[in-house]
């Protein structure tokens, strides 16, 4: 895998899409090594900023060359002051960028049938993935879900890449009323899917991984943990993951994730250190 770069990019364009902002930026050198599921860390507020920690965003699209050299897009949902600041950037504003980061989605070697599930802005990294799966001749069914219509991202665009597109919203403002996992089992049966790719909130990922396991399909889930560094040096972004040796470890989601096998993450134990974790506290110890 190639090294992440630390570069200065420049905003090309900020567009609204529902309740999100799509930010296009120059990112020399990054598109070349980006694979679906990689993310970027973006500095907030300039060099003197009191917001010291970079914010993480999935890489949505890349363009290798063009008028500005390598460019890419991210999709930003305004959450707190960092994402707010980003949404207020304008053309030519500089951005400090580190990326591409993390382990991307693993692509199947064979032309198997795949389902892609995105929750809210979690659909952002699925576009590149859908393209690459289609190029390999895979069937690609897409399920996008959100609380309400304007929190769906990219439904029109992804339709062109998908064999089928199913939409769910909690309030029924678009598609089927309900959750992605209400429709997922039937889609998997119809398409005989072998792999499920998912990106979205933890609760959704846990439910999708459970459906995939039930259907004996492989699942690849991109998680979202709070990250201080994003490059593997601080140990803030950990979650309990079962290794090849069957042992649970607190694993860094920035470098060993954000994409994990759904059957390896101990979803219901996130936010705890399970007692059988490698190096877990023992009686009388720490």
């Amino acid at each position: 895998m190639s090294n992440p770069l630390q570069i200065r990019g420049e905003v090309l364009d900020v567009k609204r899409a529902g309740s999100y902002f799509v930010i296009s930026l120059t990112a020399p050198g990054i598109p070349e090594t980006t694979r679906p599921g990689h993310f970027l860390n973006i500095g907030i507020g300039g060099e003197e900023s009191s917001m010291l920690l970079r914010r993480s965003f999935a890489i949505h699209q890349v363009q290798m060359r063009g008028m500005y050299g390598g460019t890419l897009d991210i999709v930003v949902g305004v959450n707190g002051s960092g994402s707010q600041w980003l949404s207020e950037r304008r053309r030519h504003d500089p951005l400090s960028i580190v990326g591409p980061l993390g382990r991307p989605f693993v692509l199947p070697k064979e032309k198997v049938s795949c389902v892609l599930v995105g929750g809210g802005y979690g659909s952002a990294p699925l576009f590149m993935l859908a393209e690459q799966l289609r190029e390999r001749g895979c069937r690609v069914d897409v399920v996008l879900g959100a609380s309400t219509e304007e929190k769906l991202f990219g439904t029109l665009h992804i339709k062109r890449l998908a064999t089928t597109l199913t939409i769910t919203t909690d309030d029924g403002s678009s598609g089927t009323q309900g959750r992605v996992t209400d429709v997922l089992p039937e889609i998997m049966e119809k398409s005989d899917s072998a792999v499920v790719y998912a990106c979205g909130p933890m609760g959704m990922l846990a439910a999708v991984a459970a459906v995939a396991s039930e259907k004996r399909a492989h699942s690849q889930c991109s998680v979202e943990e709070s990250m201080a560094c994003g490059i593997g040096v601080c140990m803030t972004c950990v979650l309990p993951v079962i290794g090849d040796d069957g042992v649970t470890r607190m694993v860094r989601s920035c470098v060993e994730g954000p994409v994990f096998r759904g059957d390896r993450v101990r979803w219901s134990d996130i936010g705890t250190v399970p007692a059988d974790t490698w190096g877990a506290p023992v009686e009388g110890g720490h």
Binding site: L52, M235, T236
Partner: peptide, 23 residues
């Protein structure tokens, strides 16, 4: 050492809090 449970960090003005637990 497994370290502590998450959340292990919180951003603060010009700084951060951490509670990693020496993983």
């Amino acid at each position: 050492r497994s370290g502590r449970a998450t959340p292990r960090m919180a951003e603060t003005p010009s700084g951060m809090l951490n509670s990693i637990g020496l993983q």
